[in-house]
Amino acid sequence: MTRIQEAFSSAGRPLFIAFIVAGDPDFERCVAAACALIEGGADIIELGVPFSDPVADGPTIQRADLRALCGGATPEMVFEIVRRIRQYSQVPVVLLTYYNIVLHRGISRFYREADAAGVDGILIADMPVEESGPVMKVAGKTGIDQVFMVCETTSPERLNRIFENAKGFLYLVSHMGVTGVLPTLPAGATAIVRDIRKKTSMPLAVGFGVATPAHAIDLYRVGADAAIAGSAIVAIIEKHRDDPECMKESLKNYAVSMRVATDDGRGGA
């Protein structure tokens, strides 16, 4: 059983997945942010690999990518951040990257290095299952779970293909759009959970537009196994980045509130 599978099966409650951008705003503060989130109760850390052209991301994460790149973020730094998180905690770490970063480093090399650093899962934001052949060949030889996205327009045929390839969990996209905090949980979010829940027993994590404990509870109640918050967390880092103590405190408090929601959501389905 991989560390991700273990996390989902042993918790006895839904999980809270916290997303941050690796290297935002720099190496040390990023590690501090990850540790604060874990201390507050984050069950899985999703680490975005910064990219110059993140087409799936809204303005908040775009700015974080830019801060990280300006701060000198490289794949080496990303792996070093993972190693530092590993020294602190055994929570699963999932990389969220764009394909060119992996391709340019060499798919085998990237996966080997990620595996050695302690990465548990990788999601490539611009790699649909149709283009995943070369990556799947390599991922299968490592202990890394390949995670795929599913959204409301994913056809039944394509969904089956994703089921055949995906490991760890499915990343359900809550609405047709880019990442970013929305005033309310997108209307389609609970619908997609209900729909996909009927079709697979694989853990379902929901992201995009998920920002508050109330959002998470709504998702848990219809059967989601995890809620992923990204832009809400990145916005906290952005706001308090020049005051690391305040940043850590705010992140920890946020994680505590999201972690409490996982208890509220338990057994809600």
Binding site: V55, D126, P128, E130, E131, M149, C151, T154, S155, R158
Partner: peptide, 14 residues
């Protein structure tokens, strides 16, 4: 070539 896009664009491309 190919189709390296987020999942949410695949239906539109098809």
């Amino acid at each position: 070539g190919g189709q390296y896009v987020p999942e949410a664009l695949m239906a539109a491309l098809i």
